[in-house]
């Protein structure tokens, strides 16, 4: 009995320490961003929002933020279209070559981003086409499509196939069925995938750094170049801005779909019609 309590206590202490370790960098950045001093200190000697005011008035950071948001929006839209279109086809178990195509589509996930970045630069170089911002966009689309594809496939794969057949017997064409039955029922998973694609693109740093042009960088890339020159509270505030934006998207995903389900990829409960328990 005593041993059991000791074990439980050790476990609790470890849990608290581990949680502190996991959250420390974010907490420190947020705390440092609200310093009233002209240098980074933790805990801050005085509190103020002056560095946020500074960031919001800083053209470099604001241009970078708007560029980041644009890239993330385009990436999410494109990945959403590509991922959903192909998921609709690839979710059919009978589709020839399905396994091969799905694993091919998942391969960019195992490719180091740095290799993908120089590969895209060389592609555009050998085509003699200006790489910015297309190399960046293509890189982001490549690394986000797998998530949209997978989430959409799980969402649609969980549907009762008889829903489609029922729609057919009522005279609905394949595309009508897709628009009125299949996609509305898969909507949660699809939108979660698209939001996640937005966030991944917004957060991405390596491809952004390699493919960005000076003066036209994403916010993470801009933070990188500032941070490599020293630690200024304005970087903390810019990082704080990123945390806030990420948190907003995360909250939407959590409320709309469930964060744990998104990451752990649990099979969504079958949402086909079922007889109510009587």
């Amino acid at each position: 009995m005593a041993r059991r309590n000791t074990l439980a206590r050790v476990g609790r202490i470890y849990g608290v320490l581990f949680s502190a370790f996991m959250l420390a960098p974010m907490v420190v950045v947020l705390a440092a961003s609200f310093t009233g001093e002209g240098y980074i200190s933790f805990p801050p000697a005085s509190l103020s929002t002056r560095w946020y005011v500074e960031v919001l008035q800083n053209n470099t950071f604001m241009n970078a933020l708007s560029f980041s948001l644009q890239i993330a929006a385009i990436t999410a839209t494109a990945s959403g279209l590509v991922g959903v279109l192909s998921a609709v086809v690839l979710v059919k178990p009978s589709f020839p070559g399905r396994t091969f195509l799905v694993s091919l589509a998942m391969m960019p996930l195992t490719l180091p981003h740095i290799v993908l970045a120089i590969a895209l630069l060389q592609l555009f170089g050998s085509l003699a086409i200006p790489s910015a911002p297309y190399a960046l966009l293509m890189g982001h689309i490549l690394i986000t499509v797998p998530y949209v594809l997978r989430l959409t496939m799980t969402s649609l794969g969980g549907l009762d196939p008889r829903l489609e057949l029922a729609s057919f017997t009522l005279g609905a064409s394949r595309s009508y069925t897709l628009r009125h039955v299949v996609l509305p029922l898969g909507l949660r998973g699809i939108l979660a995938g698209i939001l996640f694609a937005f966030l991944l693109s917004f957060d991405e740093i390596t491809i952004s750094l390699f493919t960005a042009l000076p003066g036209k960088m994403t916010l993470p890339a801009e933070i990188f170049s500032y941070a490599s020159q020293g630690s200024d509270p304005v970087i903390a505030a810019a990082s704080g801005l990123m945390i806030i934006i990420s948190a907003v998207v995360v909250i939407i995903i959590e409320w709309w779909f469930g964060l744990l389900r998104l990451i752990l990829g649990d099979e969504p409960a079958k949402r086909g019609s079922r007889p109510a328990g009587e």
């Binding site: 949680s19 959250l23 420190v28 991405e204 630690s231 970087i235 990420s246």
Partner: peptide, 26 residues
Amino acid sequence: IIISPLFVSVIVRTYGWIVLLGPTGP
């Protein structure tokens, strides 16, 4: 707690460690 850092940019988390490990850090 374990998953949420995955949604924060790598650069922000790295910057957090710069502050934590920095000469004036905690």
